[in-house]
Design a protein around this nucleic acid. Sequence first.
DNA 1: GGGATGCGTGAGGAAAACTCACCGGATGAA
DNA 2: TTCATCCGGTGAGTTTTCCTCACGCATCCC
Lengths: 325, 325
Amino acid sequence: MNAPDPMRERLPQLGALRVFESAARHGSLTRAAEELHVTHGAVSKQIKNLEADLGEALFVRRNRGVFLTERGRALAARLRSIFGDLEDALSDFRTRGSEQPLVVSCEPTLCLKFLIPSLGAFQQATGIEVRVLAAGGRIDFRRDHVDLAIRRNDFPIDGALHARVICDEAMGPVCAPEALAGFEAETGRFPLPALHTRSRPDGWATWKRLNRPAIACTSDRTYEHFYLAIEAALAGQGVALASIHMVERDVAARRLCSLHGFWPDGTQYVALSAHPIEDDARASRFVDWLSARMNATLAAAMPSLGESRAAVAQPAKGRAIHGTR
Amino acid sequence: MNAPDPMRERLPQLGALRVFESAARHGSLTRAAEELHVTHGAVSKQIKNLEADLGEALFVRRNRGVFLTERGRALAARLRSIFGDLEDALSDFRTRGSEQPLVVSCEPTLCLKFLIPSLGAFQQATGIEVRVLAAGGRIDFRRDHVDLAIRRNDFPIDGALHARVICDEAMGPVCAPEALAGFEAETGRFPLPALHTRSRPDGWATWKRLNRPAIACTSDRTYEHFYLAIEAALAGQGVALASIHMVERDVAARRLCSLHGFWPDGTQYVALSAHPIEDDARASRFVDWLSARMNATLAAAMPSLGESRAAVAQPAKGRAIHGTR
DNA sequence: GGGATGCGTGAGGAAAACTCACCGGATGAA
DNA sequence: TTCATCCGGTGAGTTTTCCTCACGCATCCC
């Protein structure tokens, strides 16, 4: 009566949700009542309340039993998973159970070309279990249950996130050894297409902007995915502008040749998290390891990085990284 | 008094958990009380109850405020994520919000060599958002929030799971084109090591058991990861026994050569789910697409599969697949 | 038809949750 | 030092929620 909770903090009916989940699972109010050790009347009323609160029926009553609505089924499925998580969390707490694996989201190409092959050593050395979610672009940490995302800072980073720089990005044109024969280093003429990637449309433009040696290709070809562009380069179908971190192994194995070395493009790889990375020992350790690992790659591929860096690092300035350190 | 709930169904204190989460987030009982629109006394008692139930303090009281225990902090973090999920679920329900992405767990090599490159077309055609979790081996569907897992049925499949066969596995020895020169087809002599993978230790043994042409290598080399073995083969360091589904693109691009074609090894790829796959339209559609896609690869690579299949399919018999169809 | 099953509902009661008022320790400024 | 203030604990009492009980109704099966 007296304006109890105008902006009532959501989740009013925790108990009712729990009862509904049970009833949905059993497809029966009576059996839910048994599971919860209450009478069927209690279950009936809880669900009625919940439906009133949601303004929508979750069950269709048929006098001989209840049947989930389509939307009711969807809600029940999610609730089931969520209450399962809750049970797990409490059971882990009580038994001092093991930690959850660290979930890392990473751009797919980097993921397979670099992260996964070297992950085994990390897991073995630290005992930290890592799960890799191969996904790029925007990320919803909570929805996807991601602890850490590895991204390039080529976009403004949400101020609510916490970031830690891992290493510089360095790009360079690469092609298959057999395709290298047609390349005229002086004129820059190259008798094959330039390979583009939709996920990094400004790659070649940045290369040009940084006054790196021009490469005059016969045409352009665009791939949906970085991985496919690299594969096309491997197949000798053109020259791709690739990240050193992604083609490190291919170059080392001489499946790919670098035309003009690799150069920082002003962006960095950063680790993003919804919470301060320092607060999570495992995440912190992972980022440290990743940073050391990727910087080693950089150092090996670009011994001349020292002097070139200062001139190139400028464009990245002004990009707001809300760092925690 | 009269034995109310000896085996009380877990999660007794939903409200208390909610209160604790709020207090932990604010680091203050008083501010939690404000958020929940109750008095601080109510919050204090709820948390006291919860601690009694857990048999352990969650806060350290300091007369000037409360401070989370180490374990309390861990629990609060998980609760925060879980209640966040709950809010999302309810908010999605009320607003008829969009569906969650379909999370597919897949062995990393197959994931990058095959799945991710072709996934774009699927997402575009169906509008179904797919997230790929690169992980092999055993899987906990609920803990990892996985909807669908793609695996080979080379292990007994838990009866509680639902499975649908996708396609046959087919293996064959592959090496780099330049390494092929040293291969004597008649004697089977090969002047390089055989490349093994720890994740499929019985690969070459199965090849021999099925009476495929023997390959006499100089030595053996074992890699931790399938991806690395394929990479070694690409680098001309030996001959690997690879799945057609993983090296399809490499063979097509002539980066790898097949020595004796690809042959079914008696196992199949299966889609596993915690729930009947038919019940989830999106999962069902994804499996249909994947099945068509992978069988097309098989058909293209092994036009002679028809007659060879009958003789080889036997070993797989007896492996219990709890199929839903 | 008769019994069993499954659910809805109103009245009344038990239990949980909350409020209120007061307490004590710690902090910081006067 | 003193006093005002902040933060949380606690006991008594009250409110609210939730549950039980008992009954009604419709369906299904023998």
